[in-house]
Nucleic acid binder design. Structure first.
Lengths: 344, 344
DNA sequence: GCTTGAAGCTGAATCGATTTAGCTTTTTCT
DNA sequence: AGAAAAAGCTAAATCGATTCAGCTTCAAGC
């Protein structure tokens, strides 16, 4: 393997190497040697060179060339971080595609894809700044460094941000304060005296506010600060460990607010292992961000933004932006929906 | 809105409309009017025209132009159908990105994305045939029409097919026959006399074979054909309904094989609602295709291809293909892994 | 009056691949 | 032998956007 990487091999490179013109090479690459009457020997030499030199076509060039000037083609991206779950993202994707399909016609085509960035390193994504990848983008699961990056630049195309509040961007937001408050109300109404919040160390803006509002509401009603159980990660296993430690230490808990459903799932296990009943001994409230919250045992009572409404808002706004229906950045708040199920 | 779609607006169009050169327009689009000393009045006129004409940049052209000849750039796609769940796909994506990151350097960049096609209409995806979108692709969740399309063409780049057997392609496959057999063994070893298969109406090749092998194994051991409970869809709710009907009709069941974990989840609910215990009254075996099978209550015993192995195989092969490490189509079989947990 | 400088813009080249028209050279046919 | 046809290849244009060097024109300075 060469130490310094050389320039990529182009059709031209191959042509020079073999001693023919780029046209000949292109002919072989497209497998049109028969109709264009290239000598079998030449074809073989070109094939060999393509293999030897390790030719990789440049997709941008191909696309440009293949461009049909009669059709508008636009590229929509859904950008999310690796670390985040895909539940909401996949719903967004499906909705985007539905709207794209409805708008697809003889003169109009869409490509929709999910692309991922490493949380906190959104800025490193190639093609973001110069609009050389997307005509429109839905951005979600950003961390503070990503937000800082976004605040510092103006992306030159349609952008809708989901779940984060950013000046100069169209944002669709839940109302974490209200969510936390409603969650507290549910547990308090059940008569919980020792509610507990289950939240990961690394909080997003939204989850932090949820937890905060929950605590405020509990304090206002009971005069006591609820206990905070801090989870090392985002997985159910992490949550189970954390709650097990809390319960094992004999610290009180008769109600639980988990800031994501994944954590609630882990909590279920810890609670049951400790011999406690849900909701009798410990009532649990989740968020509704898990596909199967309805099939938890018992089904999880949730207070959270309706993912249906969120998805619809986000996608509608993206298409409006792309069609210049509105240009000013707008903040849209999606009120929480409450789904009472068996767990509280 | 115009009836027939006109040709897309290009930089050139705008230039002519305003009466300036394309260079001037491009300058404004890049917001470089200050350093390039464009008159504010001209800038405003161009801006106006950009808005009025509804200019949408051509991403392919931008990318080509922005191309840095010192870096190899390759585009990897993970293609899946809309209808399928994203659990395995997202694992594949993460693994691809991991390998891509490891290979990313000053002279080498990767873009990884998920793109979706409508099940059965893979052929309609733009850019598939002419390699103008991807340098390498992982294909999964195809239906027979998609397979037919693939069999009829040779895609001119690296392709790995996951979960389907296709001549002339690199395929990574589970071994559904063995999976079904092992599932049967587990239930029989627990002493089940009335095992039941839970499977959806629309079966993929793999799930059909799993169910078939399960039945064969049970028949061979007991002499009786196991009952088949047919589920209308793919969701837990569908499965719960189907199993509830079966149990409600008083038909026997002391062991259950669900061909996907989503179905198992629904089955759990039906079983518990019927007042039966898992695994005491009814033992359940699933597949292990659910992220949280470990947190089902009780944790789900699974027989299925280890998604870890599958993902690794698929991704390794893709990179090998892209580096021309091997060119012949290969079939790789991933043996099932058995994870005994609480449910059987 | 002549130089210098800035302001305001354009022309042409470029990115990589593809295609069409067309140019040689060789072969075939009469 | 001479004309026509076939074989085998190439030059140049093209896709859309960007950039750099450079060309005018006008104002200011000595």
């Amino acid at each position: 393997m060469a130490r310094g990487d050389q320039r990529p091999v182009t059709v031209h490179t191959i042509a020079k190497h073999v001693g023919v013109s780029p046209s000949a090479v292109s002919t072989v690459l497209a497998n049109r040697q028969k109709e264009r009457r290239l000598a079998p020997a030449t074809v073989e030499k070109i094939r060999q060179a393509v293999r030897d030199l390790g030719y990789v076509p440049n997709v941008a060039a191909r696309r440009l060339r293949a461009n049909d000037p009669e059709v508008h083609h636009r590229e929509i991206g859904i950008l999310t971080s690796f670390e985040a779950p895909l539940f909401l993202v996949s719903r967004v994707l499906r909705q985007v595609q539905r709207m794209a399909d409805a708008r697809t016609g003889p003169g109009r085509r869409f490509s929709v894809s999910i692309a991922m960035f490493h949380a906190g390193r959104l800025g490193e994504m190639p093609g973001l700044l110069d609009a050389s990848r997307f005509n429109g983008v839905i951005l979600t699961n950003t961390l503070p460094p990503d937000d800082a990056f976004l605040a510092a630049t103006t992306l030159p195309y349609a952008v809708v941000v989901l779940g984060r509040r950013l000046p100069n961007y169209c944002c669709v937001l839940d109302t974490p304060g209200e969510i936390g408050r409603r969650a507290a109300e549910i547990l308090l109404a059940r008569g919980c005296r020792q509610p507990v919040v289950l939240a990961p160390t690394l909080l997003t803006e939204s989850t932090a506010e949820r937890a905060g509002a929950f605590c405020t509401a509990v304090r206002a009603a009971t005069g006591n600060e609820p206990a905070r159980v801090v989870v090392a990660g985002f997985t159910p296993a992490n949550a189970a460990d954390a709650l097990r430690a809390h319960l094992g230490a004999g610290r009180g808990c008769d109600g639980l607010y988990a800031v994501t459903d994944g954590l609630a799932l882990g909590a279920y296990q810890a609670i049951k292992d400790a011999g406690r009943r849900i909701p009798k001994d410990i009532a649990v409230v989740g968020v509704g961000d898990h596909e199967h919250a309805d099939f938890f045992d018992p089904p999880l009572t949730c207070v959270g933004p309706s993912s249906e409404t969120i998805v619809e808002q986000v996608v509608t706004q993206l298409f409006d932006l792309m069609n210049r229906r509105h240009v000013k950045p707008v903040e849209t708040f999606v009120p929480p929906s409450v789904v009472m199920r068996g767990s509280a």
